[in-house]
């Protein structure tokens, strides 16, 4: 069993086994077992309330900030069940970054937003100004913001355009070198061009990071993901290559959803 886990984890970024979750008495996830391939973009789709965001929020255990949430089952990330008692939430969240539905840069400067993670996770003595400067340039370059913002590093991040804010929210994850980036409907607050820009960015980040994205937008799932997971009422219905799921769905429920009969 143990060896199994380690070999699996080499190939997979996230493995869930029989994952159940309750909000109070309401069961939001029902025995979800899935495996997310490393270095690929996997999208979670399904109608509202199907549990896709809930599932995403399990992967960095941010669900647990509400005391009425109860979970059972296993999630294996980096070869370890993240529900084991010796798992440090701080280390887990360092390795599993998250981008939220509404861009939520902190109300501090652009520069401070990018180095926030480093400052949180490294002892102050090891932080050198030169390293921080370099990190800011590299991270902002990676998300394509450096040219726009290099003269405005001191401006408050919450005053940027929404698209820039969302890119900044991705940029601030990069200095921590996460393995997995979770995105919870990252484009729902953006216009068409912003959406396009974020999707482009996802393509450049693929391979380096395992990306899991929740989306309401089926054409986005189709355009921007390698694999697709369809969920319904807390259950995983179908998980396959994106083109296959959209062209040749195996489950009739999936077919109905992608044809737009409900959603």
């Amino acid at each position: 069993m143990d060896t199994n886990v380690t070999t699996d984890s080499l190939e997979y970024g996230v493995l869930t086994k029989d994952l159940n979750l309750w909000y109070g008495k309401f069961q939001a996830l029902k025995s979800v077992s899935m495996s997310v391939k490393k270095g690929q973009i996997t999208s979670l789709i399904g109608p509202s309330g199907c549990g896709k965001t809930t599932l995403l929020r399990c992967f960095n255990r941010i669900n647990e900030r509400f005391s009425y949430v109860r979970t059972a089952g296993e999630i294996v990330i980096l070869g370890k069940n993240i529900y084991d008692s010796d798992v440090s939430l701080i280390e887990l969240r360092k390795n599993v970054g998250m981008v939220f539905q509404r861009p939520n840069p902190l109300p501090i400067s652009v520069y401070e937003n990018v180095v926030f993670g480093l400052k949180v996770h490294t002892p102050r003595k090891q932080l050198k100004k030169s390293v921080l400067d370099e990190t800011v340039e590299k991270s902002l370059n990676e998300v394509g913001l450096w040219d726009d913002l290099k003269d405005r590093l001191k401006t408050k991040a919450t005053s940027l355009q929404l698209e820039q804010q969302q890119k900044l929210c991705i940029a601030r994850l990069l200095p921590l070198k996460p393995d997995i980036i979770l995105m919870d409907e990252p484009c729902s607050a953006l216009d068409v061009e912003g959406t396009h820009a974020i999707e482009e960015l996802m393509f450049t980040l693929r391979n380096k990071y395992t990306i899991i994205i929740v989306t309401h937008n089926m054409s986005q799932a189709r355009r921007a993901s390698d694999e697709c997971v369809f969920m319904l009422l807390g259950e995983l219905i179908e998980h396959s290559r994106t083109e296959e799921l959209f062209i040749n769905p195996k489950n009739p429920k999936t077919a109905e959803y992608i044809e737009g009969r409900y959603g």
Binding site: R93, F100, N104, P107, F116, L176
Partner: peptide, 21 residues
């Protein structure tokens, strides 16, 4: 806003860092 708390937590802050930073 709660979104700031979640942003901080998702970056792996301790409770103390969340308050301070």
């Amino acid at each position: 806003p709660d979104s700031f708390r979640e942003a901080g937590m998702a970056m792996g802050t301790t409770r103390w860092q969340l308050i301070l930073r």
